[in-house]
Amino acid sequence: MLEKVIFSLKIIAWTIVVIFLAFLVEWFYRKVLAHMQHRVGPKLAGKLGILQPIADFIKLMRKRQISPAGTDEFFVDFTAIFGLWLMIIPTMFLPIFGLEGFISFEGDAVLIIMLLAISSLVYIVTPYLFPSPYPTIGAGRRAELYLSYEIPMFLAFASAIFAAGSLRISEIIFAPTIIRNDIPTGILLVPALIVAILSSMSRLKKVPFDAPVAETEIAGGWEAELSGRRLAFFNLLTDVKLFVMGAIITTFFLGGPLGPMILISGLEWILAPVWYGFWFFLKTVVVIFIITAVSAATARFRIDQVLKIFWDRLLYLSVFQVILLILWWSL
């Protein structure tokens, strides 16, 4: 009984931690983007504006909610909360403060990929609940984008799984460190890493792949009719997603929490999780930094150009990655 209570409390505490991490990640993204664009960025709320995302969230929660007549109100609220939960659950499998997450079993890598795939549907279903032209166009674009990035992304993750030879995340994190024929697999996985970062950018709808949002074309696309609490929740969902995508790429391609550690005997029980967490967050921040840098230095592609990039370039790259891995390992 007590074990179950402790486990539940752990889950609740972790959810709150993830939400605050997501706010932190949003602040990092905004601040870095601002400095790349020669701006100051968030500044007033808290030290260096670190509380700005929380302030924005509270402000939106208190705002009036407006939606066009004929909206399916219940389902929009439902998708907002459902989508958030779909994104928080994968974080429980991630090995952040140790070599295993809260929950770990054989096949959890597949579960994470599946949860990511389902969570994309939230963005396709929600806009159709509004009787308005902009969300409809945005949803159509989102569906086309979904069709284009899902297969390359799955192949990229699959190549990490092949390299590890296991479906368990706590074993996949060791995949880049395996040395075969004198070359660490981490270097062989670079094409898959590129595919994964670009696909996760289109999943996150960052420039150059933000055609479904495209503020200057279709006035915000799928989120054009969101307001008040719904917009707050969808913004939070986007932040959590940014953190989750960075964390998943870290886990699959960059060795997760692994890294050089300095331990003092007798204090391992506290120092080891701190070091694991340090390396994991450092790598996640690097991935998010790359995403920010790419989106600061590009213009938005048209949706037909996005399809061309994914089907013409990245799909071949990911197939090439799988073949390369198989050939190298059979040498």
């Binding site: 790349m36 664009q37 020669h38 701006r39 420039v207 150059p208 933000d210 495209a214 200057t216 600061a296 230095a297 590009t298 213009a299 938005r300």
Partner: peptide, 16 residues
Amino acid sequence: AAHESGFDTIFMYTWR
């Protein structure tokens, strides 16, 4: 023009 095509960085630079 850059902002309309989603390239906000050029927008910020030219306006500065």
